[in-house]
Simulated assay, not measured.
Amino acid sequence: MGLNRPISSGPADVAAAGSDSKPAEKTAFDIRLEKYDAAVKIKIIKEVRSFTDLGLKEAKELVEKVPAVLKKGLTKEEAAAIVEKLKELGASVVLE
């Protein structure tokens, strides 16, 4: 018969929708290489190989594709350590 009525939200649905007003804290981070000095390119490649399972050729290609995401899904602590090391080498790195 007249079942074409829109489904109304109950109080629980409204409360759940309203509780999302503040963003959830991010738990997975990506490391993106923005730029680096050509003089330290080899050191950057070696460092990228140390925290990825890439071979020399793959790491070199990844570094040369600047800007490029080097690693995804890291915890904040893991990502911060890698970012710090790359910055010490002279790279411009962003934590996303």
Rank of each mutant, 00 (worst) to 15 (best):
A15R: 15
L89P: 02
E25H: 10
K85S: 15
I42T: 15
K85G: 04
I45A: 03
P11Y: 03
V83Q: 10
I42M: 08
T75G: 14
S92P: 00
K72Q: 11
K46P: 01
D37L: 06
G10M: 09
E34M: 11
L3A: 06
A80Y: 01
M1C: 07
E47M: 06
L3V: 06
L3R: 06
A24F: 13
K71N: 05
A68F: 03
I31D: 01
E96W: 03
E78H: 07
E96C: 08
L74Y: 01
L33A: 06
K26R: 15
F51M: 03
E96S: 11
V93G: 05
K46L: 07
K35F: 06
A12V: 11
G10V: 12
G10H: 07
T75N: 07
E84A: 13
L3W: 02
I44K: 03
R32V: 15
A91R: 03
V83M: 04
L56P: 00
S9F: 14
G2S: 12
D53E: 12
I82W: 09
K72I: 05
S21N: 12
P23R: 06
K60A: 09
K43F: 10
I42L: 10
T75F: 03
R5N: 14
I44S: 01
S19V: 12
L86C: 01
K46H: 09
A80K: 13
A15H: 09
D37M: 05
D30G: 05
K60C: 04
V14C: 05
E84W: 00
I45Y: 00
E34S: 11
A24H: 12
N4P: 01
V69L: 05
F51T: 01
E64S: 11
K43H: 11
E64P: 02
S8E: 15
K65F: 05
E88I: 04
V83H: 06
A16K: 15
E64Q: 10
E47K: 09
S8L: 15
V48T: 04
E64Y: 04
E96D: 13
K35D: 14
S8W: 11
K35M: 08
F29H: 07
G2R: 09
P11A: 12
K26F: 08
I44E: 02
F29Y: 14
L70D: 06
A79H: 02
V94I: 13
P23W: 03
T75M: 06
K85Q: 13
I42H: 08
K85T: 13
E96Q: 10
A24T: 14
P23G: 02
G73Q: 00
Y36T: 07
A28G: 06
P23D: 02
V94E: 14
K65L: 08
A80S: 15
K22I: 13
T75W: 05
A68K: 10
S50T: 05
E58F: 00
K71W: 03
K22G: 04
E34H: 08
D20Y: 09
A28C: 07
E78Q: 15
A24M: 13
E88H: 07
V63G: 01
A15S: 12
T52G: 00
I45R: 04
A16S: 13
G90M: 01
A38L: 09
K72D: 02
A17N: 12
S9H: 12
L95N: 05
